[in-house]
């Protein structure tokens, strides 16, 4: 057997495999749920109901999608230039860290000045954090997969140290948790009475800004050129290393903005469980979105929906919550396979 590229795939060719992949994901999840003792035919309904079935469910899904849009954009931007940033987790915490450092009373500024400053400093922190691997890569050829991945562990331990030490909330009854940010440093809710905060809107705006940069700006042109063919880009006079550094700064800044949004919009303080692996899940989001920034919004809502929905389903049907992780992994593998099948056909010899 071998793969043969398809020159001009038809619409059906592009849509059907993806639909089949999603269907197969649900079938596998249903099967596992029935092994765990639930009614397999109720699984899909319970997930949908848990993710989108009520105002509360939708709000929950949006809130879960917000950090995923940021980390998904971080991965999508970097991967487009073939800069493999696996460190969105650390960059997200960097943004959260600067937000609690500056937002817990150090600056007595009004909201309209304080929030932009906090966002800006967060972006700066995430960008600087990724600058180190970017420079190591462009100067010395150090593999950024290794450096960004290992930075995650170093940075999380650093946060842990701060939360046990200087940043520990004196009123926190001994928990490793920072003080809460002041009221001026909180992102308001978009609608009165709904728990959706402006972080979600910021995520949507970020996605559009990234999309505009990628399609309209010379920087976006350079990033795509470097990602597709470094040699040709260099021959054409594109400063490849400088483009990679700029890409890293943008990617790190986006992930850190997610950290700012989580603290200022949702949690109010920094703890070690601020992110249940948003940095890593962002990679899945970006891959599912085929690195398209607008697609990242859809993919983040899809992934958040699976998390929230599967969580609720597992409670309703009394099956383990691990089912959500399995579903996500299955969805990723099958969708990646399906994407390949939209572009290649299998030929039997």
């Amino acid at each position: 057997m071998r793969l043969e590229p398809i020159r001009n795939p038809s619409v059906a060719r592009r849509v059907v495999p993806i639909g089949l992949a999603l269907g197969a994901t649900i079938a596998i999840a249903s099967l596992l749920a029935s092994v765990a003792g639930a009614n397999p035919f109720s699984v899909l309904g319970l997930i949908l109901k848990g993710a989108f079935g009520s105002k509360f469910a939708i709000v929950e899904t949006f809130n879960r999608a917000t950090p995923l849009i940021f980390t998904g954009l971080a991965a999508a931007v970097a991967f487009r230039a073939k800069f493999w940033n696996i460190g969105a987790e650390a960059q997200l915490y960097a943004g959260a860290l600067t937000t609690v450092v500056l937002g817990t009373g150090l600056l007595a500024w009004p909201s309209f000045a304080l929030l932009p400053l906090l966002a800006f400093v967060a972006i700066l922190a995430g960008a600087l954090l990724l600058l180190v691997p970017a420079v190591l890569k462009t100067r010395f050829g150090v593999d950024e997969v290794v450096t960004t991945l290992l930075f995650n562990f170093i940075f999380l331990l650093f946060i842990s140290m701060l939360l046990e030490g200087p940043l520990k909330d004196p009123m926190g009854m001994g928990w490793p948790k920072s003080a809460r940010v002041v009221a001026e440093a909180r992102l308001p809710r978009i609608f009165e009475g709904l728990r959706v905060h402006w972080g979600f809107a910021l995520a949507l705006i970020s996605a559009f800004v990234v999309w505009i940069i990628q399609t309209r700006s010379t920087l976006g042109f350079e990033m795509r050129a470097v990602g597709l063919n470094k040699d040709a880009a260099a021959f054409a006079g594109i400063p490849v290393n400088r483009v990679l550094v700029k890409t890293a700064l943008l990617s790190g800044g986006l992930a850190a903005l997610g950290g700012f949004s989580e603290v200022a919009g949702l949690k109010g303080s920094l703890t070690l469980d601020l992110s249940p692996g948003y940095g890593y899940t962002g990679i899945i989001v970006a891959m599912l979105a085929l690195l398209n920034p607008i697609g990242v919004i859809v993919a983040a809502l899809f992934v958040a929906g699976i998390f929230v929905g599967a969580d609720s389903m597992s409670r309703a049907a009394d099956v383990p919550t691990y089912l959500a992780d399995i579903m996500l992994a299955t969805a990723l593998l099958l969708v990646v396979l399906a994407i390949m099948l939209t572009r290649f056909r299998v030929v039997r010899d």
Binding site: R216, S217, T218, L219, F221, R224, A225, L228, N229, D231, A232, A233, F235, A236, G237
Partner: peptide, 29 residues
């Protein structure tokens, strides 16, 4: 080195001179 295979003809045509007049202004294409 001469072309980027997955870029279209337009993108390949401006590959060397996208940066500045007449194909871009202040960083916008």
């Amino acid at each position: 080195t001469g072309t980027i295979a997955d870029f279209d003809l337009t993108e390949n045509a401006i590959l060397e001179r996208y940066n500045g007049a007449p194909f871009s202004r202040r960083g916008w294409l």
